[in-house]
Design a protein around this nucleic acid. Structure first.
Length: 126
DNA sequence: CCCTGATTCGC
DNA sequence: GCGAATCAGG
């Protein structure tokens, strides 16, 4: 595989080498064996580096998972607890709640039932 | 064992 | 000078 090392090849070699590609990658890109690459590189006087050189993958920094909590729920979302808070399947109702109330109409009825039975004659007064 | 790079060795 | 083989490090 005596591919004539033209200036282009050498330039590509140096470029890929500088890119951080491994000898195998460069050799594959140039169509030569990794030995040829490393040999030429060494002969050229390129900088040596640690064996397992790998290009650092650009990891996308995730914004944030955004933890859902009861306070994060919309003000108009029913927060009626379903199940036991200690159990894994615990969740909230999530149905549209009554404005001003943390529960939907159904659960609000349950929540406020008998809580403070308004007398049928305490608000008619003026 | 795999990966890699570095050096050696024959052409 | 070239690359494969070989050696060496991780």
């Amino acid at each position: 595989m005596t591919v004539v090392w033209t200036d282009e090849r050498v330039e590509e070699l140096k470029r890929l080498w500088g890119e951080g590609l491994t000898t195998g990658e460069i050799g594959k890109a140039l169509g030569v064996s990794k030995n040829a690459v490393v040999g030429k590189a060494h002969r050229l006087g390129l900088k040596g580096r640690p064996s397992p050189i790998k290009r650092v993958k650009q990891q996308k920094a995730k914004p944030e998972p955004k933890i859902r909590s009861v306070i994060d729920l919309s003000a108009h979302t029913c927060r009626w607890p379903i199940g036991d808070p200690r159990e894994p399947g615990f969740h909230f109702c999530g149905k549209p709640a009554i404005p001003g109330k943390p529960y939907c109409s159904e659960h609000a009825a349950i929540a406020y039932v008998n809580s403070s039975s308004r007398s049928s004659k305490d608000e008619d007064a003026a």
